[in-house]
Simulated scan of single mutants.
Amino acid sequence: MRIPRIYHPETLIAHSEIALCEDAANHVGRVLRMQPGQAVQLFDGSNQVFEASITQVDKKSVRVSLGEGVLSDNESPLNLHLGQVISRGDKMEFTIQKSIELGANTITPLFSERCGVKLDGERLEKKLQQWQKIAIAACEQCGRNRIPEIRPAMQLEAWCAEQDDSLKLNLHPRASHSINTLPLPVKHVRLLIGPEGGLSADEIAMTSGYGFTDILLGPRVLRTETTALTAITALQVRFGDLG
């Protein structure tokens, strides 16, 4: 059996004994049905991993004993901020999960003119919490030891207007540039992925006004969730640590 990787939201201290958080305890105790003496691996977002042994399991809690912390840096040299217009159903969850596996550092859910999802207030807050849990689970699975941030949802133009030194990219089916023609080196990218119906003409013009470069992935029309993963993969091959 593969040793489970578990995220702990508080700072871990070598050679201490701790209680796992509620979500982790439920997963270890009820889902995996692990018992005292079995091994787990913990990380706290500091790029360290700790080998640990379960010392106690009961209905509501799991306690573990930690070993020494070991630095384990699996982060890409490319810092990638994905701005994803919220998609329907489980497509958004899929995009978040796979984008993090591919190395995205930050994800901001966006609202645009053609966004088909209506979320606000408590429903939106619950979605954000759910998406952050998906980010944590993706890191536990793929071996990343830093947890990417799922930012609060915002309007498309407000996100585009944010100022930083990133290369700003927007996917467009009639663009004249491809990822392979972008100049080297690049360390920071803001990648905009539109909704299932695409960005409107006014929105595309707006992104250009904020310094976004239109790029083309290829001759075929991709679904929004496929577009995000294809673009991130191509960017990681070109500027990051894939391939």
Rank of each mutant, 00 (worst) to 15 (best):
210 Y>R: 07
218 G>A: 03
150 I>K: 04
171 L>T: 13
192 L>D: 12
191 L>Y: 08
188 H>R: 15
192 L>M: 10
159 W>I: 00
153 A>P: 02
188 H>G: 05
197 G>Q: 01
161 A>Y: 01
172 H>C: 03
198 G>E: 10
187 K>L: 12
169 L>H: 09
194 G>Q: 13
215 I>D: 04
215 I>L: 03
149 E>A: 13
211 G>L: 02
187 K>C: 06
184 L>A: 01
146 R>A: 05
208 S>I: 01
176 S>K: 15
180 N>P: 03
202 D>W: 04
179 I>A: 10
203 E>P: 04
194 G>K: 11
154 M>H: 02
220 R>N: 05
215 I>P: 03
164 D>M: 14
142 C>A: 02
179 I>N: 06
178 S>K: 01
167 L>N: 08
172 H>L: 01
204 I>T: 15
167 L>A: 12
161 A>L: 02
188 H>C: 10
217 L>M: 12
179 I>M: 08
203 E>M: 05
148 P>S: 05
222 L>K: 13
170 N>D: 12
154 M>K: 10
171 L>Y: 03
163 Q>W: 13
176 S>V: 14
201 A>L: 14
168 K>I: 05
217 L>F: 06
208 S>R: 12
151 R>T: 15
223 R>S: 06
205 A>W: 00
149 E>S: 14
163 Q>H: 15
205 A>Q: 09
207 T>M: 13
144 R>N: 06
183 P>T: 14
205 A>F: 01
220 R>C: 01
190 R>K: 07
215 I>R: 03
206 M>N: 02
179 I>F: 06
143 G>L: 11
148 P>T: 06
217 L>A: 07
190 R>H: 06
178 S>H: 06
223 R>L: 05
195 P>N: 14
150 I>L: 11
190 R>F: 00
158 A>H: 14
175 A>R: 08
157 E>L: 00
216 L>E: 07
214 D>R: 13
166 S>H: 15
